[in-house]
Protein backbone atom coordinates (compact mmCIF):
# COMPACT_ATOMS: atom_id res chain seq x y z
CA UNK A 1 0.00 0.00 0.00
CA UNK A 2 1.29 3.44 -0.89
CA UNK A 3 0.41 6.61 0.95
CA UNK A 4 -1.43 7.73 -2.14
CA UNK A 5 -3.61 4.60 -2.24
CA UNK A 6 -4.32 4.82 1.45
CA UNK A 7 -5.19 8.50 1.24
CA UNK A 8 -7.46 7.77 -1.72
CA UNK A 9 -9.38 5.30 0.44
CA UNK A 10 -9.45 7.74 3.30
CA UNK A 11 -10.85 10.54 1.14
CA UNK A 12 -13.45 8.14 -0.28
CA UNK A 13 -14.66 7.18 3.19
CA UNK A 14 -14.98 10.76 4.31
CA UNK A 15 -16.56 11.78 1.00
CA UNK A 16 -19.08 8.95 1.16
CA UNK A 17 -20.11 9.93 4.67
CA UNK A 18 -20.84 13.44 3.49
CA UNK A 19 -22.57 12.34 0.29
CA UNK A 20 -24.89 9.79 1.86
CA UNK A 21 -25.83 12.00 4.80
CA UNK A 22 -26.49 14.81 2.32
CA UNK A 23 -28.77 12.42 0.45
CA UNK A 24 -30.67 11.39 3.56
CA UNK A 25 -31.15 14.96 4.75
CA UNK A 26 -32.25 16.20 1.35
CA UNK A 27 -35.01 13.59 1.41
CA UNK A 28 -36.54 15.78 4.11
CA UNK A 29 -36.95 18.80 1.86
CA UNK A 30 -40.54 20.11 2.14
CA UNK A 31 -41.16 17.64 4.95
CA UNK A 32 -39.94 19.62 7.96
CA UNK A 33 -42.13 20.14 11.06
CA UNK A 34 -41.88 23.88 10.46
CA UNK A 35 -40.56 25.91 7.54
CA UNK A 36 -37.52 27.19 9.46
CA UNK A 37 -36.53 23.60 10.16
CA UNK A 38 -37.01 22.62 6.55
CA UNK A 39 -34.45 25.27 5.67
CA UNK A 40 -32.08 24.32 8.48
CA UNK A 41 -31.93 20.67 7.41
CA UNK A 42 -31.59 21.58 3.74
CA UNK A 43 -28.73 23.79 4.78
CA UNK A 44 -26.95 20.91 6.49
CA UNK A 45 -27.59 18.78 3.39
CA UNK A 46 -26.05 21.47 1.24
CA UNK A 47 -22.94 21.61 3.42
CA UNK A 48 -22.66 17.85 3.15
CA UNK A 49 -22.86 17.73 -0.64
CA UNK A 50 -20.29 20.52 -0.84
CA UNK A 51 -17.99 18.58 1.44
CA UNK A 52 -18.56 15.39 -0.55
CA UNK A 53 -17.65 17.18 -3.74
CA UNK A 54 -14.35 18.46 -2.31
CA UNK A 55 -13.38 15.07 -0.89
CA UNK A 56 -14.38 12.98 -3.90
CA UNK A 57 -12.61 15.41 -6.21
CA UNK A 58 -9.49 14.88 -4.14
CA UNK A 59 -10.02 11.14 -4.29
CA UNK A 60 -10.30 11.33 -8.08
CA UNK A 61 -7.04 13.25 -8.24
CA UNK A 62 -5.29 10.69 -6.08
CA UNK A 63 -6.70 7.86 -8.14
CA UNK A 64 -5.16 9.46 -11.23
CA UNK A 65 -7.36 7.76 -13.81
CA UNK A 66 -8.92 10.92 -15.17
CA UNK A 67 -12.20 10.39 -13.32
CA UNK A 68 -14.24 13.27 -11.96
CA UNK A 69 -15.90 13.50 -8.57
CA UNK A 70 -19.17 12.69 -10.34
CA UNK A 71 -17.76 9.48 -11.80
CA UNK A 72 -16.73 8.51 -8.31
CA UNK A 73 -20.10 9.39 -6.78
CA UNK A 74 -22.36 8.05 -9.50
CA UNK A 75 -20.61 5.01 -10.92
CA UNK A 76 -19.51 3.04 -7.90
CA UNK A 77 -21.36 0.00 -6.56
CA UNK A 78 -22.43 -0.52 -2.95
CA UNK A 79 -19.42 -2.61 -2.06
CA UNK A 80 -17.09 0.22 -2.99
CA UNK A 81 -18.97 2.68 -0.84
CA UNK A 82 -17.54 3.24 2.62
CA UNK A 83 -19.84 5.56 4.53
CA UNK A 84 -20.66 4.61 8.11
CA UNK A 85 -23.73 2.42 8.60
CA UNK A 86 -25.18 5.08 10.91
CA UNK A 87 -25.33 7.54 8.05
CA UNK A 88 -27.38 5.42 5.66
CA UNK A 89 -30.10 4.70 8.25
CA UNK A 90 -33.52 6.06 7.24
CA UNK A 91 -34.60 9.42 8.62
CA UNK A 92 -37.43 7.98 10.70
CA UNK A 93 -39.36 10.60 12.63
CA UNK A 94 -37.85 13.97 13.47
CA UNK A 95 -36.43 12.68 16.76
CA UNK A 96 -34.71 9.85 14.92
CA UNK A 97 -33.17 12.31 12.50
CA UNK A 98 -31.99 14.49 15.37
CA UNK A 99 -30.53 11.50 17.22
CA UNK A 100 -28.51 10.61 14.11
CA UNK A 101 -27.42 14.23 13.78
CA UNK A 102 -26.39 14.39 17.42
CA UNK A 103 -24.28 11.23 17.37
CA UNK A 104 -22.65 12.24 14.12
CA UNK A 105 -22.09 15.93 14.54
CA UNK A 106 -20.45 15.53 17.94
CA UNK A 107 -18.22 12.88 16.39
CA UNK A 108 -17.46 15.03 13.37
CA UNK A 109 -16.64 18.01 15.51
CA UNK A 110 -14.02 16.00 17.39
CA UNK A 111 -12.83 14.31 14.21
CA UNK A 112 -12.34 17.35 12.03
CA UNK A 113 -10.70 19.28 14.86
CA UNK A 114 -8.01 16.60 14.72
CA UNK A 115 -7.97 16.27 10.93
CA UNK A 116 -7.25 19.97 10.70
CA UNK A 117 -3.76 19.09 11.95
CA UNK A 118 -3.23 16.46 9.23
CA UNK A 119 0.04 16.53 7.32
CA UNK A 120 -1.99 16.11 4.16
CA UNK A 121 -2.59 19.72 3.17
CA UNK A 122 -5.77 19.08 1.19
CA UNK A 123 -7.43 17.10 3.96
CA UNK A 124 -6.35 19.72 6.51
CA UNK A 125 -7.84 22.51 4.40
CA UNK A 126 -11.12 20.64 3.91
CA UNK A 127 -11.20 19.93 7.64
CA UNK A 128 -10.79 23.53 8.62
CA UNK A 129 -13.63 24.61 6.33
CA UNK A 130 -15.73 21.71 7.63
CA UNK A 131 -15.19 22.59 11.29
CA UNK A 132 -17.07 25.85 10.91
CA UNK A 133 -20.04 24.06 9.37
CA UNK A 134 -20.00 21.19 11.84
CA UNK A 135 -20.10 23.58 14.80
CA UNK A 136 -23.41 24.82 13.49
CA UNK A 137 -24.70 21.29 12.77
CA UNK A 138 -23.76 20.22 16.28
CA UNK A 139 -25.40 23.21 17.91
CA UNK A 140 -28.54 22.56 15.88
CA UNK A 141 -28.62 18.91 16.97
CA UNK A 142 -27.96 19.79 20.62
CA UNK A 143 -30.67 22.47 20.67
CA UNK A 144 -33.23 20.03 19.32
CA UNK A 145 -32.11 17.22 21.61
CA UNK A 146 -32.77 19.54 24.56
CA UNK A 147 -36.14 20.67 23.21
CA UNK A 148 -37.32 17.17 22.43
CA UNK A 149 -35.84 15.51 25.50
CA UNK A 150 -37.18 18.10 27.89
CA UNK A 151 -40.25 19.11 25.87
CA UNK A 152 -43.35 16.93 26.17
CA UNK A 153 -43.84 13.35 27.31
CA UNK A 154 -44.26 12.30 23.69
CA UNK A 155 -41.18 14.11 22.41
CA UNK A 156 -39.11 12.69 25.24
CA UNK A 157 -40.25 9.18 24.42
CA UNK A 158 -39.53 9.59 20.72
CA UNK A 159 -36.12 11.14 21.32
CA UNK A 160 -35.07 8.36 23.65
CA UNK A 161 -36.25 5.79 21.12
CA UNK A 162 -34.28 7.45 18.33
CA UNK A 163 -31.14 7.41 20.47
CA UNK A 164 -31.69 3.78 21.45
CA UNK A 165 -32.43 2.56 17.93
CA UNK A 166 -29.31 4.08 16.43
CA UNK A 167 -26.86 3.39 19.23
CA UNK A 168 -25.68 0.07 17.78
CA UNK A 169 -24.29 1.92 14.77
CA UNK A 170 -22.09 4.30 16.75
CA UNK A 171 -19.28 1.86 17.53
CA UNK A 172 -18.21 1.94 13.91
CA UNK A 173 -17.35 5.62 14.11
CA UNK A 174 -14.31 4.81 16.22
CA UNK A 175 -13.01 1.74 14.40
CA UNK A 176 -9.46 1.78 13.08
CA UNK A 177 -8.42 -0.58 10.28
CA UNK A 178 -5.05 -1.03 8.55
CA UNK A 179 -5.58 2.02 6.35
CA UNK A 180 -6.28 4.27 9.32
CA UNK A 181 -3.30 2.92 11.23
CA UNK A 182 -0.99 3.27 8.28
CA UNK A 183 -2.01 6.89 7.71
CA UNK A 184 -1.99 7.65 11.42
CA UNK A 185 1.69 6.76 11.53
CA UNK A 186 2.27 9.31 8.80
CA UNK A 187 0.30 11.95 10.69
CA UNK A 188 -2.33 12.07 7.98
CA UNK A 189 -5.27 10.25 9.58
CA UNK A 190 -7.09 10.79 12.87
CA UNK A 191 -6.83 8.37 15.77
CA UNK A 192 -10.57 7.82 16.10
CA UNK A 193 -10.17 5.36 18.94
CA UNK A 194 -8.83 8.20 21.06
CA UNK A 195 -12.00 10.22 20.41
CA UNK A 196 -14.36 7.68 21.89
CA UNK A 197 -14.20 8.71 25.57
CA UNK A 198 -14.55 12.37 24.74
CA UNK A 199 -17.48 11.65 22.43
CA UNK A 200 -19.23 9.59 25.05
CA UNK A 201 -18.83 12.23 27.74
CA UNK A 202 -20.04 15.01 25.39
CA UNK A 203 -23.09 12.98 24.41
CA UNK A 204 -23.80 12.09 28.04
CA UNK A 205 -23.57 15.73 29.05
CA UNK A 206 -26.15 16.76 26.46
CA UNK A 207 -28.43 13.84 27.24
CA UNK A 208 -28.34 14.52 30.96
CA UNK A 209 -29.32 18.12 30.41
CA UNK A 210 -32.06 16.90 28.09
CA UNK A 211 -33.33 14.50 30.80
CA UNK A 212 -32.45 11.59 28.49
CA UNK A 213 -30.10 8.72 29.06
CA UNK A 214 -27.30 7.15 27.11
CA UNK A 215 -28.49 3.82 25.71
CA UNK A 216 -27.20 0.67 27.35
CA UNK A 217 -24.11 -1.02 25.95
CA UNK A 218 -24.97 -3.28 23.10
CA UNK A 219 -23.38 -5.23 20.27
CA UNK A 220 -21.99 -2.69 17.80
CA UNK A 221 -22.74 -3.27 14.13
CA UNK A 222 -19.85 -3.05 11.71
CA UNK A 223 -19.00 -3.50 8.04
CA UNK A 224 -18.70 -0.28 6.08
CA UNK A 225 -14.91 -0.24 5.95
CA UNK A 226 -15.15 -3.53 4.08
CA UNK A 227 -18.06 -2.32 1.94
CA UNK A 228 -20.62 -4.43 3.78
CA UNK A 229 -23.67 -2.25 4.35
CA UNK A 230 -27.22 -2.39 5.62
CA UNK A 231 -29.93 -2.94 3.00
CA UNK A 232 -30.49 0.81 2.90
CA UNK A 233 -27.51 1.79 0.80
CA UNK A 234 -28.55 -0.08 -2.33
CA UNK A 235 -31.78 1.86 -2.45
CA UNK A 236 -30.05 5.16 -1.90
CA UNK A 237 -27.63 4.49 -4.73
CA UNK A 238 -30.23 3.23 -7.16
CA UNK A 239 -32.08 6.48 -6.69
CA UNK A 240 -29.06 8.74 -6.62
CA UNK A 241 -27.30 7.13 -9.59
CA UNK A 242 -30.37 6.64 -11.75
CA UNK A 243 -29.73 9.25 -14.45
CA UNK A 244 -26.00 8.62 -14.69
CA UNK A 245 -26.58 4.89 -15.00
CA UNK A 246 -29.52 5.10 -17.40
CA UNK A 247 -27.79 7.56 -19.74
CA UNK A 248 -24.10 6.70 -19.42
CA UNK A 249 -23.07 8.89 -22.38
CA UNK A 250 -24.86 12.00 -21.24
CA UNK A 251 -23.18 15.02 -19.69
CA UNK A 252 -25.21 16.98 -17.19
Amino acid sequence: MTTKDATYNYAIRLGDNALILGHRLSELCSRGPILEEDLALTNVALDMIGRAQALLKYAAELEGKGHTEDDIAYRRAEINYHNHLLIEQPNGDFAHTIARQLYLSVFEYLFFTELEKSKDATLAAIASKTIKEVKYHMQHAIDWTLRLGDGTVESHKRMQKGLNDLYMYTGELFEMDHIDTYLLHQHIAVDTLSLKAKWQSEIEKVLTEATLSLPEDTYMQTGSKKGVHTENLGHILSEMQYLQRAYPDAKW
Binding site: P33, I34, D150, G151, S155
Partner: peptide
Protein backbone atom coordinates in the same frame (compact mmCIF):
# COMPACT_ATOMS: atom_id res chain seq x y z
CA UNK B 1 -44.69 17.89 12.78
CA UNK B 2 -47.30 18.86 15.37
CA UNK B 3 -45.62 17.00 18.23
CA UNK B 4 -42.31 18.69 17.38
CA UNK B 5 -43.84 22.15 17.48
CA UNK B 6 -45.59 21.29 20.75
CA UNK B 7 -42.31 20.09 22.25
CA UNK B 8 -40.51 23.26 21.20
CA UNK B 9 -43.28 25.34 22.73
CA UNK B 10 -43.28 23.34 25.99
CA UNK B 11 -39.52 23.61 26.23
Amino acid sequence: GAWVREAAEAY
